[in-house]
């Protein structure tokens, strides 16, 4: 039997259970519409401004960094899987198996170090830090 049929079945179940709960709740729950209920919750105050707020650029930096490293793990996984077999077979030396991965990771780590030093993962900068930044350039 194919594994994926079972997984698909679980996906279906995973969808049906929430839907079922929603259906049950729909039958049970009351509905008393009232405008103020539906207002955005801002600690009881009248909501101010829109929700599309500007947020810290660092979120974006981190997302980009993640993209790089996530993809990198995707590329490392095949290597990790065959590693044991490759080590056990005598056809290739340990160096030949290890070196490409080390080179790959080292390049990535250089990238990380660069991002680190250039403040990509620096969440908040104090005024002093910003000033220092300005002086350096």
């Amino acid at each position: 039997m194919n594994d994926w049929i079972a997984i698909g079945a679980l996906a279906l179940v995973g969808l049906l259970i929430p839907l079922g709960m929603m259906a049950v709740s729909y039958l049970l729950r009351p509905s008393v519409p009232e405008t103020s209920k539906r207002a955005t919750y801002e600690s009881g105050e009248v909501p101010t401004g829109g929700t599309r707020i500007r947020f810290n650029i660092q979120y974006y930096m981190v997302a980009l960094l993640f993209l790089v490293f996530d993809i990198e793990t995707v590329l490392l996984f095949p290597w990790a899987v065959v590693y044991l077999d490759a080590v056990e077979s005598d056809a290739v030396s340990l160096f030949e198996i290890l070196a490409p991965m080390v080179a790959f990771v080292v390049i990535l780590l250089i990238g990380l170090a660069w991002a680190w030093r250039n403040g990509a993962v620096e969440w908040a900068q104090t005024t002093r830090q910003v000033d220092a930044e300005g002086n350096r350039s």
Partner: peptide
């Protein structure tokens, strides 16, 4: 389950409704 379901007026509807399903379903 029997509480009133209050949907905020600013909600982006399909996404708002889908999010709980995604959160629960993915874990399952």
């Amino acid at each position: 389950l029997s509480k009133e379901n209050i949907i905020p007026e600013n909600a982006d509807r399909p996404a708002y409704d889908l999010a709980p399903i995604v959160i629960a379903g993915s874990a399952l």
